[in-house]
């Protein structure tokens, strides 16, 4: 029995150690014509954002969530009201990633209030897409800590595909010391194609209107995954422990998408158990064509309306102090 256990464990450890370079080398060979360079034709929002974040502290509002978040809360609108904000929303960010990010930055940013956007489609997501987004991003500072955070995220997805991505990228970065071109922002904005990264974590799309004729969504349900709910609970507990105000929100989406959820009422009821929850699909009446640019995201017209109402709500809730103007 002992012999079996020791031998099996030993073989497993040796294979696991050999696996890392073998996998990375195989990937490098297969990826010879990799698209790394052309990645820079795209706006690497996550990379820019977390290379910029260290410049911020003692902010008024911290925005957390998915692309609905980083495409909805415009720091320029908040700044007009004298509010200093930062948006850590990233593509398909789930409660799991939000937890790691909040846990890491909450003390440094020291926000008066956290606006936590919860998108129903991501509440039962394992978070692979967002984790791969982080893994493929290169950060200037605290690289070891970032690597550890990325690994923790990858492990939480329980998906070998995601873990493999981490192995490959970590091997490139730390063993081969491959120099990565890191996308950062020096001026107030960085423009690539039809999108502009605005300092503070917002991404603005050139004004476009949503063509409804392309959308034929099938009715679905709002599923609350055990893992995501566990991370949401942890995050809320952390914010409560630190005495930070938080508002759970659901960013407006086109009615075609919103109405496709059969059981949204139940979802609202469940989420409300975790704190004040404002569903802006109900609080704010927007026009599907005029206020959105695609089936998920607000255009700048919609952003302006949404942000104005949110500021009003936050003052009413007294989460960011009293309104002084």
């Amino acid at each position: 029995m002992k012999k079996f256990l020791i031998k099996t464990a030993l073989i497993f450890v040796i294979f696991a150690i050999l696996y890392i370079p073998a996998y990375s080398i195989l990937n490098m060979i297969a990826d010879k014509d990799s698209q790394e360079a052309s990645d820079f034709e795209y706006l690497k929002t996550t990379e820019i954002k977390f290379n910029e974040i260290d410049n911020y502290k003692d902010i008024d509002i911290l925005f957390v969530g998915s692309s609905h978040t980083y495409r909805s809360f415009d720091p320029r609108i908040f700044s007009k009201e004298g509010l200093k904000v930062f948006n850590i929303g990233t593509s398909s960010q789930t409660c799991m990633q939000s937890w790691f990010l909040i846990d890491r930055y909450i003390d440094a940013l020291n926000p008066k209030c956290v606006v936590y956007d919860l998108f129903p489609d991501l509440m039962n997501n394992k978070g692979e897409e967002s984790t791969i987004d982080f893994i493929s991003s290169n950060f200037e500072h605290n690289q070891a800590m970032w690597e550890w955070t990325k690994l923790k995220m990858a492990m939480c997805t329980k998906n070998m595909y995601t873990i493999n991505k981490w192995i490959y990228k970590a091997f490139q970065r730390h063993i081969l010391r491959k120099e990565n071109q890191i996308q950062t922002i020096k001026d107030d904005e960085l423009r690539i194609r039809n999108e502009r990264y605005i300092k503070g974590g917002f991404v603005e799309r050139d004004l476009e209107y949503y063509d409804l004729s392309y959308d034929n969504r099938i009715d679905t349900t709002c599923k609350l995954g055990t893992m995501q709910m566990m991370f949401l609970r942890k995050t809320i507990n952390l914010l409560k422990d630190k005495g930070i105000n938080y508002l759970l929100v659901e960013t407006p989406v086109p009615s075609v998408l919103y109405n496709s959820y059969d059981d949204h009422d139940k979802y609202t009821e469940k989420i409300s158990e975790y704190g004040t929850f404002y569903d802006y699909n109900i609080r704010l009446k927007l026009n599907d064509s005029l206020d959105f640019y695609d089936s998920h995201h607000l255009n700048q017209n919609g952003v302006a309306k949404y942000d104005s109402l949110l500021i009003k709500d936050l003052y009413e809730l007294k989460y960011i102090g009293d309104y002084v103007h």
Partner: peptide
């Protein structure tokens, strides 16, 4: 052979389980 199988199991997993 064992390593090849071990490697394939870990390396060639599809993105969706």
């Amino acid at each position: 052979l064992y390593f090849f199988l071990f490697f394939s199991i870990l390396a060639f997993q599809t993105s969706d389980s």
